[in-house]
Design a protein around this nucleic acid. Structure first.
Lengths: 204, 204, 204, 204
DNA sequence: CATGAATGAGCCTTCATTCAT
DNA sequence: CATGAATGAAGGCTCATTCAT
């Protein structure tokens, strides 16, 4: 049990199964994937999976855990320290767009799909991904808003709006929007300008 | 067959089944709902459902059809005619937020969940909801963009960003964000201001 | 009820349904044919069929009845009267080979298939087709056997052997034997020679 | 997988299921037999059957395979080597009459019934049973026919006629002919005489 | 720990039959 | 008599989960 070598082996096997699950889920979707599919992809027996995970939903939850870490690790607070507003917004937008819009997209699609429909997953997703993002975003804008004398209510809505934009763009992208596929890399800049300057002709 | 009264009866029964399906899907999700569940909810026998719909997926598609009509009917072009930019944006945002965020939300959740994972549903959703919205949005901004000398590319991205914001906010709201639940009605105004003016300190 | 015109109409409708059933059974087989298939082919409603036939098996039984008549009608006792042995055998063989091997074959296939497995059909088939054929055959050979001083036992076996040959050849033909398809018309002559002369080299 | 003991166990279970299927099919017919029936008869769970057979038709095909082997094993070429014509014909007839007419008859009935109606089964039956029998028979008669200067065409028809006689007699027997039931054992001798000598009064 | 054969509840779907119109 | 919508029992098959080896 407490043998560190043994623990490593177990952790490795767990990871191997989770890799297989992620890969298969991404390919066929959660409901169309069978435990047998995952076992085959992982090169283990069906029963083995139940030595590492309680059941099929637990696999998806574990994948969500992993995604949580990936998102968390992609944020470097130090990096945000000396940026001006535009840089800040640009960075805030760029991270999730890159983290979730890249190769993890197929998996994110499956997770989000289940999150929308499964209460347990929804709760976990909110707690681990959405809430931290909201709070992080609010923190960033709070300071700036205080200087401008804006009510905190606005900050909260602003954060939601920006997060929504990110989430929605990823969804649109997942659904196959060609314009987004082509211009994905330009988005952070474009959106930062949009959010900061708006589109309005304020001088006329 | 061609008896108009009989046709009405059949249409009513179809609607009755579809109502039951929508209700049950919304409650338990698509995959956890059985045909028996729907039949019971509709007060008909299992087999009766197959007189009106080819199979289970067809029920979901029919629901998507219904949603399509609901969204389409909620837009009144005449209403948009003499609005200024701010009013235009406000209206553009308000419609889908109300149409999909209101009572149809539970259903929208199920549909979107399946759309993300099921190619057939995705195709239909893109064709019937997303593409019309994109084109409508682009049309609206095109004229305005032409006056400002902006490249059409920007118009396209702008449309996506705004649509994304709408979609993402609905998703966030579905996932249970309290701030959004509380301030849902203020969103159109708030977002219109954000999009037109931006948050930036333009005078300094 | 006793209105002769009305009776004609009813008989015609019954025949129309039976035609449709025969046609559909022949095409798809008994078990793969649905009442709806037959109704469509007959141009009537599903329920109408039950006004003329008790249930699905009854349709097959009625078809067997029809086949019985067809076989019976194809035999003309007068024709057999002044034939010599060879002619007699030839005629005896030719009739069923033509009656069941021709266009009725598809239907005969279905009937025989069900006869082999369904006790009720088997009983009927034996009573109406097999037994009459046996008795007819025995009658024909009896007289001839008596002249030769053969025991009646032999006559009975001989009849079975010849009937078996006919039945078996039809089955082989149904199963797609090419040699038989090509030489079907020569069979009566060939078989008559075989049965009468044998293949043996009787002089050596 | 490659454990020979385990393989034996699996083969035994497969046989056990196939036995149960054969028994139940023979009793109730193919279409009236449910997977549950077979499972119960085999003493296993429904799902277990699908670990050994792809689906219900596969069970029937496997039974056909078994019958093929039984027929093949019943033929001993060496035994036929030094027989005269009469002995040869007698042996040729006796084998299938015993192989298919004995205890396998019930099963043969079901198989033949389905063969007549199901293209896949028909193809398999032709390939595995009918064609080998034809070719075997042709081979046997060819040599003899060559000596007599008969055209090969006749040999082919002769083989079909004899095979047809066998097949047809089995069918008649299956359908419950009492004369055949009583005199089944005498058939090979009787038929051999009939085929070789014919019934004709060759001297008159 | 690993295996994978076995389980059996449960799902979607079909279709013969009925009966109100 | 004719219709055809409605019924609901039943069937083939899948697959998450267990447990003896």
């Amino acid at each position: 049990m407490s043998d560190p070598v043994q623990e490593q082996v177990l952790a490795a096997r767990r990871a191997q199964i989770l890799d297989a699950a992620a890969h298969t889920f991404a390919e066929k979707g959660y409901h169309l994937t069978t435990i047998k599919d995952i076992a085959r992809a992982a090169g283990v027996a069906d029963g083995t999976i139940y030595l590492y995970f309680a059941n099929k939903p637990a696999l998806l939850l574990a994948i969500l855990d992993r995604m949580t870490e990936a998102v968390r690790d992609s944020v470097d607070p130090a990096e945000l320290a000396d940026l001006d507003l535009r840089g800040l917004v640009r960075a805030t937008l760029g991270h999730p767009l890159r983290a979730l819009g890249g190769e993890h997209a197929e998996l994110f699609r499956v997770v989000l799909s289940e999150v929308m429909v499964n209460p347990v997953m929804r709760e976990q997703f909110s707690q681990r991904i959405l809430t931290p993002m909201s709070q992080g975003g609010e923190l960033i804008f709070q300071q700036w808003a205080a200087q401008r004398g804006l009510p905190p209510e606005r900050t909260r809505l602003l954060t939601r709006a920006i997060m929504g934009m990110i989430l929605g763009l990823i969804v649109e992208w997942i659904l196959g929007d060609e314009t987004l596929t082509t211009h994905w890399d330009e988005l952070p800049d474009f959106l930062a300008d949009l959010i900061i300057d708006g589109i309005g002709d304020t001088h006329s």
